[in-house]
Nucleic acid binder design. Structure first.
Length: 265
DNA sequence: ATGGCCAGTTATACTGGA
């Protein structure tokens, strides 16, 4: 089973790109972020024509997340991250698909920092760490994926950190949260299979960063200890970033062999 | 230190992104 995460940066203008990717790569499950559209604008019919059932939580103008599945409709588990009833951002979805728990998240960007947006990012991260603790210890297989808006290291996860020193994605506080999350026992799929390689998932629209391969790794897929033995491969569909009118992110995926789960399937 | 490029908005300049 192949599961991908893709920050589409606007599902309305990006629908042709999204459909082209789904048709060519045929992921079994796709987690989307930054729909930038209300619930009523979600293109459920176009996705169903390609064989995908969807669960979504939109929001006007910004945020918005969705989980697509071509193995029957995703069974909703949560539509929000616990811990702050006043938080109305559409940034989290959790669903069950064929016995697998899939969480799709869009962690706050946090710029500019310092400031209230950075505070919100760290508070959201704390809530995620709290909730992920239970997911990691679950006896069920769990995958948590999405746009984490964290560049884990200077050495491997960004083309050159110098001009990004003050950016929220590289701050020690952001990275400390990421490390605490991983320390629960999660496997960072892309990094575990590429321990020494620079692998990017995002290239901004400025200064020909895509053409120069000046990217960073901020889209991540985490496997809990039950699921980790199933990890077969991980990668980035870079061709999607090179298309006309592309999102600034590329789809990032894992290939899982679920027959390796305890009990087998 | 700044700004470069995008998408969306009840738009024709701004916010948010990262």
């Amino acid at each position: 089973m192949r599961i991908a995460t893709f920050n589409v940066n606007g599902i309305r203008t990006r629908l042709p790109n999204l459909l082209a990717w789904l048709e060519r790569e045929r992921p079994d499950v796709a987690c989307l972020q930054e729909l930038k559209a209300g619930d009523e604008a979600f293109p459920a019919d176009a996705l169903r024509e390609l064989g995908y059932e969807a669960l979504w939580r939109g929001q006007r103008s910004w945020n918005g997340v969705a989980i697509l599945s071509r193995h029957g409709p995703p069974v909703p588990v949560r539509r929000e991250l616990p811990g702050d009833p006043a938080d109305d951002h559409s940034r989290y979805l959790e669903a069950a698909i064929e016995g697998l728990v899939v969480a799709c998240l869009y962690l706050p960007n946090g710029n500019p920092q310092p400031g209230p947006k950075f505070d919100y990012k760290l508070a959201w991260f704390e809530r995620l760490i709290r909730h992920a603790h239970g997911l990691c210890r679950s006896t069920h297989p769990v995958l948590v994926c999405g746009d984490f808006n964290v560049v884990p290291t200077d050495a491997l996860d960004i083309y050159d950190p110098r001009s990004w020193r003050k950016d929220a994605l590289l701050q020690p506080e952001s990275r400390a949260c990421w490390e605490r999350l991983l320390a629960q026992g999660w496997t960072d799929a892309l990094r575990s299979l590429n321990p020494d390689a620079k692998v990017f998932t995002f290239w901004d629209y400025f200064r020909q960063h895509w053409q120069r391969d000046a990217g960073m790794r901020i889209d991540h897929l985490l496997l809990n200890p039950v699921l980790a033995p199933c990890l077969q491969a991980a990668g980035v569909d870079r061709w999607v970033r090179g298309e006309a009118h592309a999102s600034d992110h590329a789809p990032t995926w894992v290939e899982l062999d679920l027959s390796r789960l305890p009990g087998g399937r």
